[in-house]
Simulated scan of single mutants.
Amino acid sequence: MLAILNMIMMGDGSSNILNKNSLTDFDGMYSFNQKNEKFPATSFILNPPYSAEGNGMIFVEKALSMMDKGYGAIIIQNSAGSGKAIEYNKRILEHSTLLASIKMPVDLFIGKSSVQTNIYVFRVGEPHHKDQIVKFIDFSNDGYTRTNRKKASNNLVDTDRAKERYQEVVDLVRFGKSKLNIFTEKEYYEGTIDPKNGADWNQSAPIDIKPRLEDFKKTVADYLAWEVSNLIQNSSKENDNLGK
């Protein structure tokens, strides 16, 4: 069954829900009082069904294409950003900019499923430029400990500054590296993607393999310590033999 978009009417404070197929039956227009006017959505949050076309990105493309401006955030299986939705992703980037890719804890949906998910954040109405900086955040440790016990009184426990971590992710997406505090540079990386690729949305900080002087000194010190230890052991054995 295809997902249902819950469209909230603004004005009198009422919530008018449309029970329709969001891919085929919704044209972006008001369905109640202002039927001849376009629904002016400027933001959306979406968790599409991963079994749908493009790992669920078919819903994301539809939602973004019906907006003229604003922001969107989705949580989806991360394979959608690494090869399972290439054509959808390339079309999305023709009219929307990927601002951030956030790797979530693998046990986020514990008790229901164990899948690696990412949150992708978009700015709508501006094609993604190849030089646009994308914030890649490894949020594998979100500060919460989860339990799979269905009858537990509390299945979610803040064990590592969870609230502060979530706030820092928000700040990093908005303001960038200057907001690094709890997270390390291994968990936060600013890079670029190729708008014509569609499979490079999941990146991590590059591993620095360049040898450093400090590493060389430590290696030499470790080797000398090993040599001295061997000399002492050999000397002790020789003295023991002479004593016999």
Rank of each mutant, 00 (worst) to 15 (best):
I86K: 09
I86P: 02
K69N: 14
A73I: 12
P105Y: 00
E94T: 14
H95M: 14
H95R: 13
M66G: 07
G83E: 14
M66E: 13
F109G: 03
G70H: 09
M104S: 02
G70W: 09
Y88G: 01
A85R: 03
M67Y: 07
D107A: 12
A100F: 00
G70F: 12
L108R: 00
V106K: 14
L64A: 06
K103I: 06
G81M: 03
L108H: 05
R91N: 13
L98I: 13
S82R: 05
E94S: 15
M66P: 04
S79G: 14
G81I: 00
Q77H: 12
E87C: 06
K103T: 08
A63M: 15
Y88L: 11
I58L: 08
N55G: 13
G56R: 03
A85L: 07
I74Y: 00
K69G: 09
K90M: 12
K69S: 15
S65E: 12
L98P: 04
I76R: 00
F109D: 03
I58M: 06
Y71S: 13
P105D: 05
M67D: 05
I74R: 00
P105L: 00
A73P: 08
F59H: 12
A73V: 14
S101W: 00
M104E: 04
P105T: 00
L99C: 10
G81F: 02
L93N: 10
L98E: 06
G70R: 09
V106R: 13
M57C: 09
K103R: 14
G54W: 00
T97A: 10
L108Y: 03
E61T: 05
A73N: 10
N89C: 05
G81N: 05
I102Q: 10
K69M: 11
S65N: 13
L98W: 05
V60F: 02
A80C: 11
A73D: 08
Y88H: 15
S101V: 02
H95Q: 13
I58K: 06
M66V: 06
A80P: 01
G54L: 01
K69H: 14
I102N: 08
G70C: 11
I74L: 03
E87P: 04
P105A: 02
Y71N: 11
G72Q: 08
I74P: 00
I92Y: 02
V106S: 15
I86L: 07
N78C: 12
Q77K: 09
I75Q: 05
A100I: 01
